[in-house]
Amino acid sequence: MDTLKPEIARLFAAKEARRHKLAALPFSEKVRVVVRLQEMAAPVLRARGIKVRVWNLDSRVA
């Protein structure tokens, strides 16, 4: 079986650590990250003809 080069293994481990760090964020922070993801994904999806709407988190608060 192939083994990963140490530097690649380190990169994967760092990636994994980042995902766990993201998982530990407060919910409101995560929602902001989701909206950033939407902003990144929307142009690609729209170019494919998929209608999507990026959330507006700044709606008036009563």
Partner: peptide, 14 residues
């Protein structure tokens, strides 16, 4: 996905 995001890394959803 938003319910899941409460517990795990942020997941893309619209």
């Amino acid at each position: 996905a938003m319910g899941a995001t409460f517990y795990v890394e942020p997941l893309l959803t619209f």
